Simulated scan of single mutants.
Amino acid sequence: MNVFKKVLCVIILGSLLLGLSGCIPSNNNNNQNSSLLGKEITNPEGLKLISANVTNVVDGDTIDVMINNKEERVRLLLIDTPETKHPSKPVQPYGPDASEFTKKALLGKQVELEKDISERDRYGRILAYVWLDGKMHNEALIEKGLARVATFPPDIKYVDPFLDLQQQAQINGIGIWSLENYVKENGFTEQNSQVETNIGTSDLSCINKIKGNKNSKIFHLPDGAHYNDVADKNIVWFCTEEEAQTEGYRKSKN
């Protein structure tokens, strides 16, 4: 009887120890966190980042990326760049410059996405700060005068440093701040015609002279025979022939 009791006690004690061990957290992946988007890695600075590959640049503040073999659209947080592809708005000054800047910086690169509070906007786009080689692209656009600060609480983690950069760009009168009364609190002033822009740097020499016709899907170079025949309401501006062809436009034969 005593032997039976001893065996029973050993079994009960072992079961208790196994149950307790399941409550002890593992330290094997203490630098990784689960996310609806993918695996978050905590970098040496303590930022939780998600790796992604940039497959397409939609606009200055919007990109497409691949995360875990799935393509996602990303809207850069806390900034707003002038429009280039809005369905009801014309191409706005410095919009193509912002788009070209983002394309040259990010297209084809592996970047890291940092979330704020919200994960997606009402359109299903991921909301993120985009990092490349330790530098944040959202900040770079503001610094170059290609974006304004746009706040949508609760996603305001970097609003103070962003506003400081914006103030400096305003003082220097670069990019969007070089046009009087162009930047408004809720966006940009509508323009009747495309304004040629050049912020004076070697990598931002895009002056929008390639004219596309939305109706015919044909684009015209400045020396083309029908360049001035395109009605203003049908004009879509491009920086390069490649950009026009990517959007489905073909080159005029004349």
Rank of each mutant, 00 (worst) to 15 (best):
N2Q: 08
F4Q: 12
F4P: 02
V7A: 03
L8Q: 14
I11L: 15
I12N: 04
L20H: 05
G22L: 13
C23R: 12
I24C: 02
P25N: 13
P25C: 12
S26P: 06
N27M: 01
N27W: 00
N29R: 09
N29E: 14
N31I: 08
E40F: 04
N43L: 10
P44G: 15
E45M: 13
L49C: 04
T55L: 08
V58R: 06
D59Y: 06
G60T: 10
D61E: 03
T62W: 00
T62M: 01
K70T: 14
E71R: 09
E72F: 03
E72G: 01
E72N: 05
R73F: 15
L76C: 01
L78S: 05
P82H: 13
E83H: 15
K85I: 12
K85G: 05
S88D: 11
K89Y: 10
V91L: 10
Y94C: 07
L106H: 06
E112F: 13
K115R: 12
K115F: 12
S118Q: 05
E119C: 02
D121N: 11
D121V: 06
G124I: 02
L127Y: 07
Y129K: 00
D133P: 10
D133G: 11
D133Q: 13
H137V: 14
E139M: 06
A147Y: 14
V149I: 05
A150N: 04
F152N: 13
F152Y: 15
F152M: 15
D155L: 05
D155T: 06
D155H: 05
K157V: 07
V159S: 09
D160H: 12
D160W: 07
L163V: 13
L163I: 13
D164I: 04
Q170N: 13
Q170A: 09
N172P: 02
I174K: 07
L179A: 02
V183E: 08
K184P: 15
E185A: 14
N186C: 12
N186P: 13
T189R: 08
Q194S: 03
N198Y: 14
S202V: 12
S202M: 10
L204S: 12
L204F: 09
C206E: 06
K209S: 11
G212E: 02
K214I: 06
I218E: 02
F219D: 01
L221K: 10
P222I: 02
G224C: 03
A225Y: 12
Y227G: 07
N228E: 15
N228F: 12
N228D: 15
D229H: 08
D229V: 07
V230Y: 02
V230E: 03
V230Q: 02
K233V: 05
I235W: 00
V236E: 04
W237M: 09
F238Y: 14
F238G: 07
E242V: 05
E242Y: 06
E247W: 04
Y249P: 01
Y249C: 00
K251I: 00
N254Y: 15
